[in-house]
């Protein structure tokens, strides 16, 4: 009995020892595999992280803004992200110490429509969407007709800004009235308030909507345009920041536009690039505002259409009536 029991005990111990052996060996094997796996993983990871951070001295050719071709190591290239909120902030502030002013000489306008095309190109508009338009004017049946380019007047007392319920349209310190399309809710109060019909509404998807996707919104260019919001002439605020004349002014072939800073009492002709005194130009030629009786105080002056060098043909007259 005792023997048996001892035998059975022994057998049990044997069995147990066999079992513990297999567990131990299991752990041993597991340990070896695990260590190998860990080591392999670490090696792969370190290799991967080395690949990630290792200096990549492949040279890439880059064209700089001032038109120079330079080579830059590939690892030195960073994606540039435009800070839209900063752009918007700057766009709301405007240029300090400036009061921009435009003078349109009606005697020289021959309806070349280059200003309209340049403007539509810059602001991504369709041929029938206008920030500036040239109208054929005739005050009475017996007076001679003339052409009148009509941009936003950038009033010093803007009725459009007063009616905006969401502070989307605003006047800057340099006199320019702008629109923030990201804030605009499309109520069109401003369109109704503007006595010069300077504003347009994007009823349909804007032109180039696919190409402009993901582009940083520029408040001084209103690009990308946004469906369901209002848009209008911006005096090319983005160009003025660079010290350049607006798109329409510099594309006119007939010397119609003068643009400058009222604080410096000087305006520059967009065609001849000749700079003259603003006060003298207005005094000598009898400059005037559109609808001064409304008290809107426009920043656009007109010079009367005297000594015109052209005729308005009947055909063109009809065309403008149809528009």
């Amino acid at each position: 009995m005792d023997n048996n029991s001892s035998e059975t005990n022994h057998k049990n111990i044997d069995k147990k020892s066999e079992g513990s052996d297999s567990r131990r060996s299991f752990f041993k094997r597991f340990g070896v595999i695990g260590a190998a796996a860990a080591a392999g993983g670490a090696a792969i990871y370190s290799g991967f992280s080395y690949e990630e951070t290792k200096p990549n001295h492949d040279m890439v050719k880059v064209l700089t803004a001032d038109n120079k071709l330079v080579e830059v190591p590939r690892d030195q290239i960073r994606d540039m992200k435009v800070d839209v909120s900063r752009l918007t902030e700057l766009g709301r502030e405007g240029l300090p110490g400036k009061r921009f002013v435009m003078v349109i000489d009606l005697a020289k306008c021959r309806n070349a429509r280059k200003c309209i095309q340049a403007c539509q190109g810059a602001h991504h508009l369709r041929p029938y969407e206008y920030h500036i338009n040239t109208l054929t004017m005739q005050e009475s049946p017996n007076t001679a007709p003339y052409y009148m380019p009509k941009p936003c007047q950038h009033c010093d007392n803007p009725p459009c800004v007063a009616v905006c319920p969401v502070d989307a349209t605003f006047k800057r310190q340099d006199g320019i009235v702008l629109i923030d399309n990201e804030r605009c809710i499309g109520c069109r109060f401003c369109v109704a308030a503007c006595p010069y019909s300077a504003r347009m509404f994007h009823w349909e998807e804007p032109l180039f909507v696919e190409g402009d996707k993901g582009k940083a919104y520029n408040i001084e260019l209103n690009v990308p345009q946004k469906k369901g919001t209002v848009s209008k002439c911006l005096f090319s605020a983005d160009r003025l920041r660079e010290g350049k004349l607006p798109y329409c002014v510099s594309s006119c072939p007939n010397g119609v536009y003068y643009f400058g800073d009222e604080n410096q009492d000087a305006v520059t002709n967009g065609t001849t690039k000749e700079t003259v005194r603003l006060s003298e130009l207005l005094k000598v030629n009898g400059g005037y505002h559109l609808m001064p009786e409304l008290g809107t105080k426009p920043r656009v002056y007109y010079l009367p259409p005297k000594n015109r060098l052209f005729e308005v043909t009947e055909e063109e007259e009809k065309k403008s009536e149809n528009v």
Binding site: K244, F259, G260, A266, T268
Partner: peptide, 10 residues
Amino acid sequence: FAKRYFGNLM
């Protein structure tokens, strides 16, 4: 000339 923002005034 006097320098102005967009050009030189004679």
